[in-house]
Amino acid sequence: MRTVPSTRQGAAMTYALPEPPPRRRWRPWSRRTPPGLDVGVGVLLFLVEAAVFVAIDFGYGMEVWAAQGAQERIEAARIAGLAWTQRFLIATLVFAGLALLSRAPWTVLSQLLAAGAVAVLLTLAQHDYDRRHPDPPPAPNPAYTPCYSGSGRCN
């Protein structure tokens, strides 16, 4: 309590002022998320992310199927699928960071599991794409002269 001196003459009294109410600021990192809410949000977010990933990946697969052999459309759909998967991986890592900020360990764990699964799927898809599209062979040296049988130019 704070005291304020009286302004009345001849009396030495003090009046007590009430304490101001504490400023309540809610910050997600101020206290730990309750375990029930943490587990519920973690499971729900994991399931929603899995459903979104399957639905979008199915859409790109249908685009490849609808291309009916048109290689340009097939390649465009595969590259778009890879780019979307990369962005989805970043989004899951951002969600994990937000859960870490909110001090929700089970949600962080579910998001890291989701990010790990997406990273594995992205790595496999990228490897498959790279295997289907090998780098072109290097250009021959301009000083190279092919050796033909009987030409006399062989070293």
Rank of each mutant, 00 (worst) to 15 (best):
L37Y: 01
L37Q: 06
D38Q: 01
V39S: 06
V39W: 08
V41S: 02
V41R: 03
G42Y: 03
V43Y: 00
V43F: 03
L44D: 04
L44V: 06
L44M: 05
L45M: 08
L45S: 12
F46G: 09
V48D: 13
V48C: 10
E49V: 08
E49L: 12
A50F: 09
A50L: 15
A50T: 11
A51G: 12
V52E: 15
F53M: 08
F53K: 11
V54Y: 09
A55F: 10
A55C: 07
A55E: 14
I56E: 15
I56W: 05
D57Q: 11
F58A: 12
G59W: 09
G59H: 09
G59Y: 08
G59A: 13
Y60L: 02
Y60V: 01
G61F: 01
G61P: 05
M62E: 14
E63I: 04
E63G: 03
E63A: 15
V64C: 08
A66K: 09
A67V: 02
A67L: 02
A67N: 03
A67T: 02
Q68D: 08
Q68T: 04
G69H: 02
A70D: 15
Q71S: 10
Q71K: 09
E72R: 13
E72A: 15
R73F: 05
R73K: 12
E75W: 00
E75Q: 08
E75D: 13
A76Y: 00
A76G: 04
A76D: 04
A76W: 00
A76V: 01
